[in-house]
């Protein structure tokens, strides 16, 4: 790490982003409401939420595109409003809703990025990293959305930033491109960078994030690891059993088990059981005791989609949560920090 990096690390005490009571009003509309969040250096943090939840507003405040109505945002120890130049020097940005300079080539875009960061990167090397080196001398106006996204990512990587802020990075990328994006995100984390990225595509987040924050209607409703959030939403596991034939005895026997909360016959040969994770063996024993033969079984975790829906909609049927009425989820996270929802 360079001396600059060390200085930054020292000044920020291991904290990459700190939001304290951050609010933003646009007239009568509250885009962000009292959001407090800490992102530690070196982690990949996923910022989740439906469109319009306030993700881009938060990022706009970090970059001083937008000024908060209340609260503060600190990036790598520098105030995002008063020391914005220092922030943007240390940060690589892939914004949402950007537009490239149609008349400039990919190489010229990189040259601008490199000159802006006063770094000595090779434009072609950066373009190679994102897989569009062969388009270096083509004008960006003719690029597909996916190529534009790769180009802006290459620009964000210029100067080896301490922190990458990526707003919906997989927009416009095909599955292969999205995978390459994830590889680059991991490589940047391994280099020592912090990655903060927003998304409404859950698989993206699950695949790479150390921790996630979920934003809903401008409020941060949960911050934790994905596993801990999943636990907080209830411990039930969905057990799908394939048997030779489903009988009423079998269903009754399973339904009366203490740790089973539901059972449903899906077909002649398949039942789905909602139960506590450690009740799986008891369920299978009960089925066999009732004369059934278990051909196959499958354990499904609560999908991220369901989890996301639970946090971001008022539809109570999405899944059962511990405190659904007020949507407060307080749970010790994996690293012992208390997490407020």
């Amino acid at each position: 790490m360079s001396q600059l990096d060390e200085q930054l690390g020292h000044r920020s005490d291991g904290i990459a982003i700190e939001l304290v009571g951050l609010s933003k009003q646009y007239g009568d509309v509250t885009a962000l409401d009292n959001v407090s969040l800490t992102v530690r250096e070196g982690e990949i943090f996923g910022f989740l939420g439906p469109n319009g939840a306030g993700k881009s507003t938060t990022i706009d405040i970090l970059l001083d595109f937008v000024r908060p109505s209340a609260g503060t945002a600190t990036v790598l120890g520098d105030d995002a409003q008063t020391d914005s130049l220092a922030v943007r020097q240390a940060v690589g940005v892939l914004p949402d809703g950007y537009h490239l300079y149609d008349r400039l080539t990919a190489r010229q875009h990189l040259e601008f990025a490199i000159a802006s960061k006063e770094s000595d990167d090779d434009p072609i090397e950066l373009l190679e990293r994102v897989g569009i080196a062969d388009a270096a001398d083509r004008k960006a106006g003719g690029f597909s959305k996916g190529m534009k996204q790769r180009l802006v990512l290459a620009m964000a990587l210029a100067g080896s930033p301490e922190l990458l802020i990526l707003d919906e990075p997989s927009t416009g990328l095909d599955p292969n491109g999205a995978r390459e994006m994830r590889e680059i995100i991991r490589a940047e984390r391994d280099r020592g960078a912090t990655v903060f990225f927003s998304s409404h595509i859950l698989e993206q987040v699950e695949a790479v994030c150390d921790r996630v924050g979920i934003l809903r209607n401008g409020e941060l409703v949960a911050v934790d690891t994905i596993d801990a959030l999943r636990d907080a939403l209830g411990t039930d596991t969905r057990l799908v059993l394939t048997v030779e034939s489903v009988t009423d005895d079998m269903v009754d026997a399973v339904a009366t088990l203490p740790d089973v909360t539901g059972i449903q016959a899906d077909s002649e040969t398949r039942v789905t059981v909602m139960c506590a994770p450690d009740a799986k063996t008891a369920v299978i024993h009960a089925v066999e005791a009732a004369g059934g033969t278990v051909v196959d079984f499958d354990v499904e975790e609560i999908s991220l989609e369901e989890m996301f829906a639970a946090y971001t909609t008022d539809d109570d049927t999405a899944t059962s949560t511990a405190d659904e009425d007020d949507r407060e989820v307080v749970t010790p996270s994996a690293d012992g920090q208390e997490v407020r929802a």
Binding site: L63, F65, R88, V93, P95, D96, L100, A113, K117, V152
Partner: peptide, 14 residues
């Protein structure tokens, strides 16, 4: 208007 300012001002330019 177009959004290229988000690219421009994402870099350290006042």
């Amino acid at each position: 208007d177009r959004g290229s300012s988000k690219i421009l001002l994402g870099f350290p330019h006042s």
